[in-house]
């Protein structure tokens, strides 16, 4: 009973502050638009945005589904590509020297510049959107996983050698689990980027999806409806982030529970790493 009480208190302590902050911002926004007599086409009050979300719910859901599909498929391939490259790069010095610089260079190429090319090559279907999402979100996954695969203590690897562990066993029992917290840090960044990637890809060429919807509404200066779409997109991003965090908690219980005992200092450090 006592344990349950502290648990709900802890949940309240994590959920209440951001919630109160959001209410405060929305209230200030509402007050500003009403008192300042701001035109709705410039900045609509939150209540109008809420009404628009409700009235256009079917349209939003239909288009959100298109965008969510792109994001999930893109995210999946970004994980495959990011983790695959990381393992490849860490497998040998030569491969690392050959590939790593180009990995960094790949992020210097402005994605907006190649997106139209992708449309030319792959048309208006799902493919170019998925490719854009993969291109913007695989990088943080790859870089974090590369660092993570270096994280196992050298003494531990030596110890495993003296216990007759072969290279595969050392990888599976030490290097891989040590890399997982880093991988999840990368996934969190990638989750946010994948939503941006999806919107952008739809701007360049699409006939449906939330990004496409924004473009259409922008042409009609339907500002209130645009805000409704923006809120929906934010919600998708938040949900994706939460799913990643939840998976992390389920798959790496040791990481969370060990962190709780080590106090605030480490907590901050880990947050910065994310």
């Amino acid at each position: 009973m006592f344990a349950r009480g502290t648990r709900s208190r802890r949940v309240a302590a994590t959920v209440l502050p951001p919630l109160l902050f959001a209410i405060f911002v929305l209230a200030a926004w509402q007050l500003y638009t009403v008192v300042g007599n701001i035109k709705e086409s410039t900045l609509p009050p939150p209540t109008d945005v809420a009404r628009s979300i409700w009235e256009n719910r079917q349209l939003l859901i239909d288009n959100a589904w298109v965008t969510i599909k792109e994001i999930l498929i893109g995210f999946f391939f970004a994980i495959l590509l990011g983790v695959g490259l990381a393992v490849l790069i860490r497998s040998s010095r030569t491969v690392e020297r050959a590939i790593y610089p180009w990995l960094v260079v790949s992020q210097m190429v402005p994605i907006p510049a190649i997106a139209p090319l992708l449309i030319i090559w792959f048309g208006f279907e799902m493919q170019p959107k998925v490719i854009v999402i993969v291109l913007v979100s695989f990088f943080p996954i790859a870089v974090n996983t590369i660092d993570g695969l270096r994280a196992a203590e050298p003494e531990l690897l030596n110890l495993l050698k003296t216990l007759k562990a072969n290279a595969w066993q050392r990888f599976r029992k030490a290097q891989l689990p040590a890399a997982l917290p880093f991988l999840f840090s990368g996934l969190k960044v990638a989750a946010a980027l994948s939503v941006i990637g999806a919107v952008f890809a739809e701007w360049v060429g699409a006939s449906e999806g939330l990004g496409y919807l924004i473009l259409v509404l922008n042409n009609q200066t339907a500002t209130t409806d645009m805000f409704a779409v923006i809120f929906t997109l934010a919600l998708i991003g938040i949900l994706l982030f939460l799913i990643v965090t939840l998976l992390e908690r389920l798959l790496l219980p040791w990481y969370y529970e060990s962190r709780e005992t080590e106090g605030e200092g480490l907590h901050l450090e880990v947050e910065e790493g994310a």
Partner: peptide, 18 residues
């Protein structure tokens, strides 16, 4: 020789995930 003697390094090297 590797694997013939027991070896305990200076740091405990316990795996935090186990």
């Amino acid at each position: 020789l590797l694997g013939s003697v027991g070896y305990m390094p200076q740091r405990d090297c316990l795996m935090p995930w186990r």
